[in-house]
Simulated assay, not measured.
Amino acid sequence: MKKKILSVLMCAAMAVSLMACGGSSDKTSNSGAATSEGGAAESSELKIGLVTDVGGVNDQSFNQSAWKGLQDAEKDFGVTVNYLESKTDSDYNANIESFIDEDYDLIICVGYMLADATRTAAEANPDVKFAIIDDATNADLDNVTCLTFKAEQSSYLVGYVAGLTTQKNNVGIVLGMASETMHGFGYGYVAGVLDANPDCKVQQINANTFSDSAVGKTSANTMITNGADIIFQAAGATGIGVIEACNEAGDGIYAIGVDQDQAYLAPDSVLTSAMKSVDVSVYDTVENLVNGTLEGGNVVYDLASNGVNIAPTQDLLTDDVIAAVEDVKAKIISGEIQVPATQADFEAKYGDVYELD
């Protein structure tokens, strides 16, 4: 079958990185924190640690959003917060252990790449509470709260924008890693593009890193050379290079941000962003800890709960496009539009037009 999608595989000689999604709730122990008469922990006694992925706490994306949520919780609840950055994936276990050794009450791990390290630590330390973003595989553990997002829904929205806005019928997506979680971004984005513009071509590049902006920039420049005028990046710090390339290209070339509203990075070039409320999920988790209601399991954030959305900055979008997005948003929430999150669901509607790397 003739492909509508140009799929390009890019390998970067880098250590494997991260990003990810997670889920709902089950009961956990109080990890020794002081409690009030009502059973809620005294917030001044609580210590919460954040372990980043290799993108670092200032990645202007996923990790930074998680840290913002923790800082907001510090201000509102009086808890003590700290973070440890993972330079490589070999740091995950050591960083988690550092917080355990210092008697932290809750350890928040940012991204599915920390799933194995989280499980190992949680099983060995059942009296310590853990949370992990973008991973639901640990939802069976009573002391792990998984925080997951329907990222395919926000990706669909920005894909719809791209399909309606492109002047060349040629758009792109740069993923940080080839994985089931990351391809959820891809399925949603391509579905949105094709629903808005069935004649549009979509280029895909897997950068194979979340921490190399140079690889992101090269990926975007390759797509621009091949005719793309709008490029969505779901690649953490690597995606910053995508935005730089689009900004430097100018002349009707646009980037689409991810996780946060990234318009501030290039106001004339970032068309919109696929929002994921990582900061809200972290804040909610700390609030539940303080209130003594934090449970294990999978907590899902979706469009209906405003856990995912399109960015509020829409200066570069026409009124017609904004109206069209609001219409499909309502249809997703009502269930009229079912956004594919897996290969089987995608191919059932669109066929074999999205080739995975």
Rank of each mutant, 00 (worst) to 15 (best):
G188K: 12
D195R: 00
N170H: 08
G184S: 14
G163L: 07
Y189E: 05
E152S: 15
N169R: 11
V161P: 08
S219N: 05
S154C: 07
L175H: 10
N170W: 00
T209V: 13
T165A: 08
V161R: 09
G184P: 06
L194M: 14
G163A: 07
A214N: 13
V171T: 13
Y160T: 14
N169P: 09
A162D: 03
L194W: 15
A196P: 12
Y187S: 06
N221H: 05
Y160L: 04
D212P: 04
I205A: 08
N221K: 14
C200W: 08
D212L: 06
A191L: 13
K201S: 14
N170K: 11
N208I: 00
V174E: 02
Y160C: 09
T218R: 14
T165S: 13
S179T: 06
G184R: 15
Y156S: 12
T148L: 09
N197Y: 00
D199G: 10
L147Q: 12
G188W: 12
Q153H: 10
V158H: 05
T222Q: 10
M177C: 01
K201Q: 14
Q203G: 12
N169H: 14
G188Q: 12
D199M: 07
N206P: 03
Y189Q: 04
M177R: 10
G176P: 10
K168E: 01
G192E: 10
V190Q: 09
N197V: 02
G216S: 11
N206V: 15
S179P: 01
T165N: 07
V193T: 06
G186K: 01
L157E: 02
M223T: 03
V202G: 02
N206D: 15
V215D: 01
V215K: 07
E152Y: 15
G192P: 11
T209G: 02
H183Y: 15
S211Q: 10
A196V: 12
T218W: 03
G188C: 13
V202H: 05
V202W: 01
I173H: 09
T166M: 11
K150Y: 00
Q203A: 07
Y189W: 03
A162T: 07
D199E: 15
A214D: 06
G186R: 08
T218F: 10
E180T: 14
K168R: 03
Q203V: 00
G172N: 06
G184D: 07
M223D: 01
A214L: 08
V215A: 13
S211E: 10
V158A: 02
D195M: 01
N197S: 12
V190S: 06
K201R: 11
L164D: 10
A220C: 09
E180H: 04
V202P: 03
V161C: 11
S154F: 06
Q167G: 12
I205D: 09
F185Q: 03
I173F: 08
G188A: 13
S179L: 09
G163D: 10
K150N: 11
N208F: 00
N169F: 05
C200M: 07
G216A: 10
K201L: 11
Q204R: 05
N170E: 05
N221R: 13
K168D: 00
L157Y: 05
A196C: 11
T222G: 09
G216R: 07
G184F: 01
S219P: 04
G163N: 08
K150C: 02
Y187W: 15
H183V: 12
F210Q: 13
S179Q: 00
P198F: 01
N206Q: 10
D195F: 06
S179R: 00
C200F: 06
I173N: 04
